[in-house]
Simulated assay, not measured.
Amino acid sequence: MTSNLKVILLFLWSLQCGGGNVDVQQQPPIQVALLKEGISIPCTVIFPYMPKYTKFSIFYYWINSLEQKTSIYSRSENVAIPSGKENETATISYDHRIMPLANTASTGTYYCEVKWNDAQKMGKGVFVLARGTGYVETSYGWEILVTLTTLLAALSITATALILWKRKVVCPGRNLLNILRQKVETQPPSASPPPPPPPVYDCLDLQQVDVYSILENNTDNLSPRKNPPGKPLEKQATLEESSDTLYENI
């Protein structure tokens, strides 16, 4: 039992010392790259400042859309332990730049892998979308906003013009009244009101007035009594002729 327990403890200790304190990270997980600008494969190595882990090798490779693996670059590192930093954790970036990309078929996932004597760690990879030199990331938000604003303004102006035209065609009398009312309201307060129109009787001349007066006098002089028996017929004929003349003048 004692020997078996020692074996288990040694195995666990070996696992902890054999890579439990090392790691490889790759950020950001997605990149968009132009062919002429190339890409940078991120690779951050985390390890303790111990002679066992300061020596390691880094391998960069690419897996395309067909799951074909292509080796890109490799390097060896021997990091010096700073004074007073023994057993502390170090975080160092070892990015690799590819300049330029061959073509748009360079799209794929790029990995970084680090190997120690008794440990091996691989990053999660970075997906790179390769674009041509003419690629421009455009945003249509402002164009849509300007188009909608212009359309709404045009519709508002058109609706206002139609309403004004309809009022002018259907209610011309109301427009005339409004114009007259505005003229009256714009007159200064000190201005005297216009004189009233002359009465209808002013159109009558003096001759017509005399005719009416003669008619009234003749009407007053007429009475229902009979003519005296001795009155001559010529006088009655004269009165009838004068009455006919007055009615003709009227």
Results as ranks from 00 to 15, higher is better:
W62I: 00
Q120F: 04
Y60V: 02
K69C: 00
I163K: 07
T109I: 13
R97C: 14
K85L: 11
Q26G: 08
D118H: 15
N87P: 09
R97N: 13
I163R: 07
E234M: 07
S139F: 01
W13F: 14
V184I: 05
G84N: 11
L164H: 10
P229L: 13
I41K: 00
E137T: 08
V200C: 05
T238K: 14
P29R: 04
Y140T: 13
K235E: 12
M99T: 15
G123V: 10
L239W: 03
T245K: 05
Y135A: 01
P48I: 10
A90C: 05
S192L: 15
E113Y: 02
V24Q: 05
E86A: 03
D220Y: 10
I98P: 07
P42R: 00
D23L: 13
P42V: 02
W116R: 11
T133R: 15
I39R: 02
L15Q: 13
L180Y: 02
F11K: 03
P189R: 04
I157L: 02
S223F: 08
I250P: 12
N218D: 13
T104K: 09
A191H: 04
G108I: 00
I58V: 15
P188T: 12
I39S: 01
I58C: 05
L215G: 06
R131M: 14
L15H: 10
Y110A: 01
I8D: 07
V128W: 01
C17M: 08
W142C: 03
V22P: 01
V24N: 11
T2E: 14
P196G: 03
V209H: 13
M1H: 03
L145K: 12
Y110C: 00
K69D: 00
S76T: 02
Y73I: 08
P51H: 01
T219E: 05
N175H: 03
Q207G: 03
T2C: 05
P29S: 11
P228L: 06
P194R: 09
T160R: 05
L10F: 06
G141T: 10
N103C: 07
D205F: 11
N103K: 07
T186F: 00
M50K: 14
E88H: 00
A33T: 02
A159L: 09
P232M: 15
Q27G: 03
P51N: 13
Q27V: 12
V211D: 09
F127P: 04
P232E: 06
Q182A: 10
W13I: 12
K115N: 10
E241T: 02
G18L: 14
